[in-house]
Simulated scan of single mutants.
Amino acid sequence: MGGQNSALLAESYCDWWSLAGVDALVGEQPAGWLAMSPANDAAASRPRRTATAAAEPQPLPDALQRQSSERPVESRGPTALPADWKDFHQWLGSSEAVPGSQWDARRVLPVGEAAAPLMLLTAWPEIDDQREGQLFAGPAGKLLDAMLQAIGLVRRQCYVASLAVTRPPGGRIDAHDAAELDRLLWHHLRLAMPQRLLLIGGDIVRIAAGLTLSDARGKLLDLNQDGGKMETVAVAHPAMLLARPAQKAAAWDSLKLFNRGR
């Protein structure tokens, strides 16, 4: 390039920069190209406001506000137990306050009359009992009938009951339920007034006699009921005897104690 055109082009560049406000190629003071102007610093120090900032939530209406309880929650006392035999049985069948009724909607209720020659008592219904709606159902019931026949009784002569009217999950209870069922046990025995008592299964033996089944086998247990002694014998549950036939001999050793002295 050169000549007159080059001169005209250079003059055009200078005019453009002059119009842009640049009047010198090099300034007298050094310039920091990355330094922010004071105006920009002030703007940066102010908190930014976004257009999408959420509005403050409005308070709930009074009707929806959480109300503080002015009165402390009263603790529930022990369950009231009906003192009349008929009322007691109606209560077992319908009341939500019955200890041990909370585990299943289907209740398995006692069968028989007070002052029976023998009361058969287990802790709670077995799975088959819960399904059939009666205690000692199925093959276990047939074995029990044979055991009773061996001591000269039939089931209809006995008062048949479980301590709890439903079966707890896994056949286990906590300390609170155990305390409530213990109260129910002695009240039930007081109303039933059986001549003799047959505890069936390790759970009821532990609750009523405070013994393991192995320690109670072959022994005549005298339970203290309102100052009187009640002849009591403990045997394994017939369902257990069906699963472990070798234990039938121990059950017979206990049952025949009822015939002692006759």
Rank of each mutant, 00 (worst) to 15 (best):
V108Q: 02
W17G: 00
N224R: 14
D84P: 07
F136W: 15
A208P: 06
M119C: 13
G202Q: 15
L257Q: 09
R196G: 10
K86V: 10
S162Y: 01
A7Y: 12
L81C: 08
E74D: 04
L19N: 10
A164S: 14
Q90F: 08
L143V: 02
Q225H: 14
G261S: 11
F136D: 00
D215W: 08
L257N: 07
Q195T: 11
Q247E: 15
A43N: 13
L197W: 05
V111M: 07
G141F: 09
S162W: 01
T212H: 13
L144G: 04
P168G: 01
S254R: 10
V205D: 00
P99M: 06
P72V: 06
L148S: 03
A20L: 15
L118Y: 10
P139G: 02
A161G: 00
A164D: 03
D182G: 01
A243Y: 03
L8P: 00
A209G: 15
A246R: 10
D174Y: 02
A179T: 08
V98S: 01
L9G: 01
Y159T: 00
F88T: 00
Y159E: 01
Q58E: 15
D62F: 09
E231T: 01
A178G: 03
N5C: 05
W16I: 12
G21D: 12
D145W: 03
A123M: 15
R46D: 04
L220H: 10
A243V: 04
L242G: 00
A20M: 14
Y159D: 00
Q195G: 10
G171S: 03
A83G: 13
K86I: 03
E126D: 12
G171L: 02
S18E: 11
M1C: 07
R156P: 00
G21T: 09
E70R: 13
L120W: 13
W103C: 00
K142P: 00
S162I: 02
L9A: 12
R49H: 12
D23Q: 11
R244P: 00
S37N: 08
A42G: 08
D23M: 06
S214W: 01
D182V: 00
L213C: 07
R262I: 04
Q58C: 09
L64M: 15
A164M: 11
W252M: 15
A251H: 11
T166R: 06
I173Q: 09
V205F: 04
R155L: 10
A161L: 01
D203A: 15
L144D: 05
N40Y: 12
V160L: 06
L120K: 06
L9H: 07
L221A: 10
D41M: 10
A146K: 14
V165L: 03
L109C: 06
Q102R: 13
L181Q: 13
E113K: 15
